[in-house]
Design a binder for these strands. Structure first.
Length: 125
DNA sequence: AAAGTGACTGTTA
DNA sequence: TTAACAGCCACTT
């Protein structure tokens, strides 16, 4: 997709894929720089969990704001929008607010231009 | 133990 | 362009 296969191999070797532990996911999210965003699928891929975007969403749901060392707000869906959910109790608005504070702009359709803001990892961590 | 449910996504129509 | 679908898998009932 966006990365050299070689890079993926390296990253996957370093990240443990202990299912039921979301450490690899959190590790990737921590690498997203301020002012950039990553998609759920992208994070899953980098964490060695290809095709399991939903797992990333679930992992972030567990963390949410309790852990301040994880920039959870920088993960959005593939359409470039903040994923909404009735269970988020307004934290979706908080997410948008945090991103705008980092300099990310939303267009008239409440979407983020991925061409401009999508995180493109250097080789590797 | 089986079935339902999501902070998802690529494909198909 | 948008929308429905089918995979996806940990968790909860």
């Amino acid at each position: 997709m966006f990365y050299e296969t070689q890079h993926l191999v390296i990253i996957q070797q370093e990240m443990k894929k202990t299912s039921s532990s979301y450490e690899s996911i959190y590790e990737v999210v921590r690498c997203i720089p301020s002012g950039k965003v990553a998609t759920y699928g992208q994070v899953a891929e980098l964490a060695g969990l290809i095709g399991q975007a939903r797992l990333v969403g679930y992992a972030l749901y567990r963390v949410d704001m309790k852990s301040s060392d994880i920039p959870w707000q920088r993960v959005i869906n593939a359409k470039g929008e903040v994923s909404l959910s009735p269970f988020r109790q307004g934290t979706d608005y908080v997410q948008r607010s945090l991103l705008e504070h980092e300099g990310i702009q939303f267009n008239a359709n409440d979407k983020i231009d991925l061409k401009t803001y999508l995180w493109e990892p250097e080789v590797p961590l």
